[in-house]
């Protein structure tokens, strides 16, 4: 009965072939601590999923306006069930994203996994790294407390140091001549609409290339000099 239903589904959707291609593919033999390094990419993907889910939940009770942002964040922490926990996950997950992405990048770099034919995977990964930084920067402002406000002010001032066009860059960044309501809603839109959409695209490309090329073997010790 169940096997008949499965066969029916597989024949019409090919999910079994997709499953095989994704999860039954050859991965390099690695032992000991080195094997763990191969988990960094998956770990990043997992934390990203947690961020997406907790972020969606937080957005249900958050208002990106100077009148309500701080109070709505406090409301999440004090009134919503598991609100403190969910917000904590999102807060710590944000730091974990940066750390994991950096470690993952170092592993790929030091194992020379970015080389031919995996340059495109590396470039998509660099794009994802920049998107993570973008998430961190825009998300930092949203609680609208003193730390958030002044940290973003610093970021805007740094952007303002761009040669020649600096003042325009910082105005575009913060959505006006000075920080305020427009900055907050702008950062919120970037954080929950623009960056997730871009990340989704880059992530699909990155993962497709990972499966397409297969995972690179760990570097081998050679007896004679190169």
């Amino acid at each position: 009965m169940i096997s008949a239903a499965l066969a029916w589904t597989f024949e019409r959707t090919g999910v079994d072939k997709i499953w095989e291609a994704l999860f039954a593919r050859h991965i390099p033999e690695a032992k000991g601590p080195v094997a763990w390094l191969y988990a960094l990419g998956s770990a990043t993907l997992f934390v990203f999923t947690v961020q997406a889910v907790t972020g969606t939940l937080l957005a249900m009770n958050y208002v990106p306006s100077p009148d309500h942002a701080y109070d709505s964040v406090r409301f999440i922490g004090s009134e919503v069930y598991f609100g403190r926990f969910i917000r904590g996950l999102h807060h710590w997950g944000a730091s974990f994203m940066v750390v994991l992405v950096a470690l993952h990048m170092m592993r790929v770099y030091f194992m020379a996994s970015y080389k031919y034919p995996r340059e495109a995977t590396w470039l998509a990964g660099v794009g994802l790294f920049l998107l993570v930084i973008g998430f961190s920067f825009t998300g930092y402002l949203l609680p609208w407390d003193q730390k958030a406000y002044w940290a973003t002010m610093v970021g805007a001032n740094i952007a303002g140091q761009t040669p020649f066009v600096g003042s325009y860059v910082s105005k575009i960044l913060i959505g006006g001549a000075e920080m305020g309501a427009a900055t907050l809603s702008r950062f919120y839109a970037l954080h929950v609409l623009v960056l997730p959409a871009l990340t989704g695209g880059a992530l699909v490309l990155h993962l497709f290339l990972v499966v397409w090329h297969g995972i690179s073997e760990p570097p081998k010790r050679v007896e004679k000099g190169s």
Partner: peptide
Amino acid sequence: VLGGSGLGYFISPAF
């Protein structure tokens, strides 16, 4: 843990 707390958060208005 993750699913349970997320679900609790989502349905918390019910209480």
